[in-house]
Simulated scan of single mutants.
Amino acid sequence: MTDTSFILWLQQFSNGFLDLFFTYITKLGNPEYYMLAIPLFYWCINKKAAFRFTMYFLISIYVNSVVKATTAVPRPSGDEVRILYKESTLGTSSFPSGHTQGTASFWGYMAYYIKNKAFTALAVVIIILVGLSRMYLGLHFPIDILGGLSFALVILWLFNQFYDDLVKKMKTLSFQTGILLSIILPLFLLLPPSHDKGMLVGFVIGLLVGYQVEGTTLGFQSDATFGKQVVKFVIGVAGFFGLRFILKALFLQIGFSDTAPLAADVIRYSIIGLWASYIAPLVFVKFGLSTVGGGFPRTPAGKAVTR
C-alpha cells in the first residue's frame, strides 16, 4: 500500500512550473470550492437536484473520513519523496485520498446526470489531474487515489439505488416525524471515529430540517433573472461564511468549543445548514429575489401542505 515508486517516477519531472500548476490544481479538491459550488447550484440553478447531490456528496465525504480514521495509514515520508503543500495534510491520514474522492464525487455526479460528452471529458480530466497532483506533491500513494475513486463510484451507485425510495417513504411521514428523524438519525453518525464529523453531521441535520421546512412552508424557486441570481448568491454566501465566522468566535468566547467541541461543531453547522436550505431562501423570497411554488408535497398520510 505504501509503495513510492510511482511517486518518485512522477517527481522526476518536477520543475517550478509543475510545482505551481499542481499546487493550484490540488485546490480544486479543497472544501472551500464545494462550499461555493453547492450553494450556487441550490440557490440559483435547481433546488431539488442540488439537494440530492449534496446528500450524496456529504455521505461520500463522511465515509472517506471514517475510513481514514479507522485505517490511519501514514502519508508518504519526506525521507522517501519530495513533499510540497504540507499544510493541507495536517492531522489526517493517507487512505483514501479525500481530495480525489471529493473531486470524483462532485464531477462524477455532474457528468453522470448531465450526460454531455464534452462535459464528461472535462470532468475526467479534472479528476485525473487532482489525483495526479496529490501524488506529485508527495501527499498520497497511488492506492490512496484508487481508493478515493472507487469509494466515490460505489457510493454513487448505492445512493442511486436507495435515494428515491427513501424520499418516497419520507413523504409518507408527518411533518413532525420527518423533522424529528432528521435530527436524531444523523446523530448516530457521530459514533464512529472520523475527522470533522461534527461539521458533517451538523450540516446534514440543518440541511434536512431546513429543506423540509422550506418545502412545506415556502417552496421557493431557484430560477430568476441574472441580476437577481448574482444578488442571491452574494447574500447567501455572505450569510454562510458570516455565520461560520461569527458562531466560531461566539462559541470560543463563551468556552463552548473548549468544553464540548463536538457538540459545538454540530450546533454551529446545523445553523449553517439551516441557513443554506431555509433561511437564505426565505430572505430571497422576502426581498423579491425568488418566487414560490415548488414545495415538498407529501402523501395524505403525511398531513403536510401540498403545493
Results as ranks from 00 to 15, higher is better:
Ser5Trp: 10
Trp9Leu: 14
Ser14Met: 07
Leu18Gly: 06
Asp19Ala: 02
Leu20Pro: 00
Leu28Ile: 05
Gly29Thr: 00
Gly29Leu: 02
Asn30Cys: 03
Glu32His: 14
Pro39Ser: 13
Leu40Val: 13
Phe41Asn: 03
Tyr42His: 09
Trp43Gln: 03
Trp43Lys: 01
Cys44Glu: 11
Ala49Asp: 08
Phe57Tyr: 11
Phe57Thr: 05
Leu58Ala: 05
Ile59Phe: 12
Tyr62His: 04
Val66Thr: 00
Val67Ile: 15
Pro74Arg: 13
Arg75Thr: 02
Tyr85Arg: 06
Tyr85Val: 11
Glu87Leu: 06
Thr89His: 12
Ser94Tyr: 10
Ala104Trp: 06
Ala104Arg: 04
Tyr109Val: 04
Ala111Glu: 08
Tyr113Thr: 12
Asn116Trp: 07
Phe119His: 10
Ala123Leu: 15
Val125His: 11
Ile127Tyr: 14
Gly131Met: 00
Gly131His: 03
Leu132Asn: 00
Ser133Phe: 11
Ile143Gln: 05
Asp144Ala: 07
Leu153Tyr: 00
Leu158Thr: 01
Gln161Met: 15
Phe162Val: 15
Ser174Arg: 13
Gln176Cys: 06
Val201Ala: 00
Phe203Val: 14
Gly206Ala: 02
Leu207Ile: 13
Leu207Arg: 05
Tyr211Ser: 10
Val213Pro: 02
Val213Ile: 12
Gly215Tyr: 03
Gln221Asp: 06
Ser222Ala: 15
Ala224Met: 10
Ile235Val: 14
Val237Tyr: 12
Ala238Thr: 14
Ala238Met: 14
Ile254Met: 03
Gly255Pro: 01
Ser257Ile: 07
Ser257Leu: 09
Leu262Ala: 08
Leu262Arg: 10
Ile267Ala: 08
Ser270Gly: 15
Ser270Cys: 15
Ile271Val: 14
Ala276Ser: 12
Tyr278Cys: 07
Tyr278His: 04
Val283Gln: 00
Gly294Leu: 09
Phe296Val: 07
Gly302Val: 07
Val305Pro: 04
